[in-house]
Design a protein around this nucleic acid. Structure first.
Lengths: 308, 308
DNA sequence: AATGATTATTATCTTTATGGAATTAATATT
DNA sequence: AATATTAATTCCATAAAGATAATAATCATT
């Protein structure tokens, strides 16, 4: 029997408190899970899980063994990372978690290039705006816009890019409601608010003379910037969106940048990854790669246009 | 692939620096070893062993991985010991190493009783008078007569029995050469010397008035007590042998005990076992069992006869 | 270059694992 | 209490992996 894979199954079952959930998550059949657990129990000579069809409980022995198994699996992982690091060749599966819109618009474009450059690295990408528990869910790397909360001290957060926000609206909307000339003017506009984490409707604008924060209001708040974008494109109001979201439409002339002499807020993009003794090269490799890619693909055009 | 068993194979190959030695020691074919190593290399994505048909060398990566593997295997072991300990049921394979003659005459009799009492414990016994490296050779327990050297501090040595030695010779020999009446008389006899570890021919005898040590001499020194016994039975001289060796012959009258008012030396029997965080119950169980068994089977008859 | 020793490889056979369907078991619902 | 529901287990046919034995290939030694 493959004790190690059985351990992995066991740990997953304990974590999820279900055979079938563990099975589907691991991509194997529930009968296989059942068998592997049985074999493991036979192997160690003790009942690890007390199971009825409706309830699953971990025995005392099982709980102790579970702890050990976690450590062992982590060590096995570490050993493989060590090997990977020693020979410097990135390889293996890289599991990335990323914010939804950012992932759809930017990461999605970077990934094919990365894959072409490093064929020995397999990718598995989940787009997700809710906070995830990296370690528990087995991600190697999370890309997060805005300041991440790091309750878990075993994680490292590294800022890898700044993402400028821009005020914009359609020419048609502006023709109807006028161009704001000062930040204060924004109070008179229907402001389409993108809430990321903080659901604040305070917009901060900075120019040579300093910063000012305006409390804006409007008839839309959304936690997805594409939704805000669509509203803006539909002439519903003024939006404060990330460069990469509006870029295309500004170029096309469908959106116009407002208050170009002001610098709107900058969002930060953070790479978050486990602080491991031997972190696999694939992770740092991807971060380096993506940071470089973003420098080339993120901020150029609008900056020029805006500050022109 | 079963990574864990492949790790075990890999560790053994590195330790022995040979595929075929590892194979025969592990009881598998060398092609299996070859396959498992290949799979492991594929799994970690690095060459672990640089092998030509004549020489085997460990790569830098392999050396680092080897170290990790050892730790992992030890942890897996510990996890299983923990389980075994938590539920108190001794089970699994117990590998014992024991002195040759002692093993043949005493351990051999205790083992069937142990097996009957604890059917879930499998035994593997090696009789061997040379010092063994418990941990390296995978023994759970060594039974050693005479003071063990413990260079390895991770071992525990516990004295579990005293084995009295007795001076004896055949009636026929004594008829011809006379009965020694004092320790000093032994100098006039042909003394058959059993060398255990120390190859000394000093015999120490103790009575109520104190100890005296006699330097004896004779025409036989041997490191095996059965060999000395045979010489004594063949009327060749006076032997100083462990109770369990001569017991039977004394009862039969083929050997006679000498200087009964003196106490010859006592050898100590030590149980030597790894000092582990979670030591498997089977080890302490066997020690307890054997200690008890020896109390009932070792020292009774001759003592009475000798001191009578 | 031939030899001897040792590993890699291949074909074959055996064992073990897998996934899906049927079964059993335990709880919630009625 | 009977039923419905859900989850784990067992059964079975299939697939995969493992071991073995025999062969081929490799390389130091002579």
């Amino acid at each position: 029997m493959d004790v190690l894979s059985a351990m992995a199954v066991f740990v997953r079952v304990v974590d999820l408190k279900s055979f079938s959930l563990a099975a589907s998550e691991l991509g194997i059949s529930s009968s296989s899970v059942s068998k592997q657990i049985s074999h493991l129990e036979q192997h160690v000579g003790a009942r690890l899980l007390q199971r009825t069809t409706r309830r699953l409980s971990v025995t005392e022995v099982g709980a102790a063994y579970h702890e050990k198994c976690q450590a062992i699996l982590a060590d096995v992982d570490e050993a493989e990372n060590l090997v990977s690091q020693l020979q410097g060749k990135p390889r293996g599966l890289l599991r990335i978690n990323c914010n939804m819109t950012f992932g759809q618009l930017l990461l999605s474009k970077a990934i094919p290039e990365f894959m072409a450059a490093y064929p020995d690295v397999q990718l598995e990408v989940a787009l997700d705006d809710s906070d995830v528990e990296l370690l528990k869910e087995g991600f190697d790397l999370a890309l997060r816009i805005a300041h991440p909360k790091l309750p878990d001290s075993s994680l490292i957060a590294r800022q890898i890019a700044s993402i400028p926000l821009f005020l914009c609206a359609t020419p048609s909307y502006l023709a109807q409601h006028g161009h704001p000339q000062t930040p204060e003017d924004l109070r008179q506009h229907n402001c389409l608010v993108f809430m990321l984490a903080s659901n604040t409707n305070l917009w901060t604008l900075t120019n040579a003379e300093g910063s000012q924060t305006v409390q804006v209001s409007g008839d839309l708040k959304a936690n997805n910037s594409l939704l805000v974008l669509q509203a803006a494109l539909a002439h519903r109001g003024v939006a404060n969106l990330a460069s990469f979201v509006i870029e295309h439409y500004v170029e096309e002339g469908r959106l116009e940048l407002l208050l170009p002499e002001f610098q709107a807020e900058q969002l930060s993009l953070y790479a978050i990854y486990p602080d491991r003794k031997y972190s696999p090269p694939k992770v740092s490799l991807f971060i380096e790669f993506f940071q470089g890619w973003l420098e080339n693909n993120l901020q150029q055009k609008l900056h020029c246009q805006s500050r022109a």
